[in-house]
Design a protein around this nucleic acid. Structure first.
Lengths: 341, 341
DNA sequence: CGCCTTGAGTAAAACGTTTTAAAGGTCGAG
DNA sequence: CTCGACCTTTAAAACGTTTTACTCAAGGCG
């Protein structure tokens, strides 16, 4: 493999060495068209000798394909930053990267930043996976504007985009049923104030369950931007106001952290006096003391599905508008165990 | 913004509408050369009207710049897969993504896969961050072969690549001193069998410390590929053979999990009878019961440094051969607390 | 034998941008 | 008035690949 000094060898160099035209080299390497076996062998040899590696940028410009997909979320930094939601994003990214590679594509990570427009300006991609977009999501509208194939993990607010169903209502039911089964009878829901699909559905399920058990509903909305701190504040107020509370459902794990801190400082025993559950089983849920009961959302499988659907979409294959993700499973931890359990 | 049906507007369309040449448009948009303010305004208006977005592939082919960097590791799957080491990789990737974006670059995630060659074939990048490479690292040799700027997180085995010092010896000293200070006097080191720089240094530090305290060293090597299971096996054997053991240092967190399981099944109290510490403070360390004392390696800062150095390297700026990362800090958890602490 | 099809190969165009070489114009100094 | 310096603008080249349109030869079939 002797490289012509300075310059990387091109298809032209290979063609010259093999004594054929550029077109034939292209056909031999990646081409659909037939090439005589003996010619192909000459070309292969030239490639090996020169150490030729195709220039991806040139190929991509010519074909229009980027061979890269992106993963992004527009969660506000207060809930997505640090180790909490970032875990959510990263679990999905890791799995998507592996599966993208199986389709000869790279995965680029678009971090949650203040300015989505500049973030996307420098990222080339064939399509995107967007995680739990909100109504009027900035990333989503940019993607639409560029006409990029997009798959939603979670549920789209109003769009007709293909999506992976994460079973929002099933998850909420599972966690609430667990609280009820453990004996909680005055259960509060602490939820984000934004217009997110997951929150709407969770709230609906909560109201239905409370009504079934004849429990007065107690919904507290926290602006997402206030994150853990906001949840801490409202929980302290809530505990003063309603001392008989014996269960809290805080789907956002950053909120759950705030809830736990409030309970500690109010001197309430968990799970003795108050049981707490959250949704995403990430670092926060596991590190809390007592550790939080949560749902295993099987994000690796969800991401694998999203990647496959996106690849189908990009390739122009037929796709299902909605793909059912794996059902969540309950991870019972100390924060909701029956007394003495 | 009225797009000429079907085709995305190009610089040529903008030029025509603004009544100037392509070159002037290019100069106005990204160019270094002067453009008359009034002309520039006409061009800006044309851009807005057409909704022009530069074709990144074309730009990249022309300039030779990809505006993307990659993060990769070649840790064997047994220790890097699942939530343990993957956490390590992802913590770095998340931080690198944010900082890459500040330099107008995307971050692509190269997952640890069986075949590095095919993994890299489809990834275009200006440079790479490689995490704790081993001797004769497959990724590393591919990067070298393609002549790509590379920064090592950890320490390179024999290469002259720029690297971010993660303070291997300082970390090992800190964790061992902690064990000694907590009263442990028969301390075993359970470490990977491979030729990794971090392991060599850790072992050296261990021997020095043991000698200083007049303790007979006890080093057990586990093939990395055996992961948690391997560590479990050797620890059970170790406990039978040396019942007086009162401290275990297992730098690899997957090994620490195996160690804890062995201790449980042998009925040894942690930290009562045996104290355990590990290195990377990830999901595994926090989720273990009792939770493991570990080192906060400040991976976000390490990744930020690596990204900056890589960007300097790509831009051809002067760089330091070795950059000191942040000093690790001790995170004391129950697995090493003094009795009754 | 004549005609059509097929297969292998080639030269040149095309992709959309940035860069280069050159040209036109203005302005000030001599 | 002339010359050079400087600024703006342009036409065309260049980047490295894939695709297109075409040629040429060989072979099958009537």
């Amino acid at each position: 493999m002797d490289r012509p000094a300075g310059r990387r060898p091109t298809v032209k160099d290979v063609a010259k060495l093999a004594g054929v035209s550029q077109g034939t080299v292209s056909n031999a390497l990646s081409g659909m068209r037939g090439v005589d076996p003996v010619t192909r062998q000459r070309i292969d040899q030239a490639v090996a000798q020169l150490g030729y590696v195709p220039n991806l940028a040139a190929r991509r410009m010519r074909t229009g394909m980027t061979h890269a997909i992106a993963v992004m979320t527009s969660m506000p930094a207060a809930v997505s930053a640090g180790s909490s939601r970032l875990g959510f994003l990263m679990e999905i990214a890791a799995s998507a990267a592996i599966h993208a590679l199986e389709h000869n594509s790279a995965l680029v990570l678009v971090p949650p930043v203040a300015d989505p427009a500049t973030a996307l300006r420098n990222v080339a991609m064939d399509g995107a996976i967007i995680i739990e977009p909100q109504r009027d999501d900035a990333f989503l509208s940019l993607l639409r504007q560029r006409g990029l194939p997009t798959v939603v993990i979670g549920q789209p607010a109003q769009d007709d985009l293909p999506w992976i169903d994460m079973h929002y209502s099933e998850t909420a039911e599972m966690l609430l049923s667990h609280l009820l089964q453990q004996g909680s009878r005055r259960i509060a829901l602490i939820i984000g104030a934004s217009q997110r699909v997951s929150q709407g559905i969770t709230e609906q399920v909560y109201h239905a369950q409370m009504q079934r058990f004849g429990i007065a509903p107690r919904v507290i909305r926290v602006p997402e931007a206030e994150g853990e701190e906001g949840a801490y504040r409202v929980t302290r107020a809530l505990l003063q106001q309603d001392p008989g509370l014996d269960g809290i459902f805080a789907p956002v794990d950053a909120f759950a952290s705030g809830v736990m801190r409030a309970l500690r400082e109010e001197g309430r025993a968990v799970p003795g006096e108050v049981r707490v559950v959250t949704r995403y089983d990430g670092l926060r849920a596991r590190e809390e003391r007592p550790a939080l009961t949560a749902a295993n959302l099987h994000l690796d499988q969800v991401a694998a599905m999203a990647t496959r659907v996106l690849m189908d979409l990009i390739a122009g294959r037929e796709i299902a508008h909605c793909t059912k993700g794996p059902s969540p499973s309950l991870v019972i931890r100390d924060s909701s165990a029956v007394q003495g359990g």
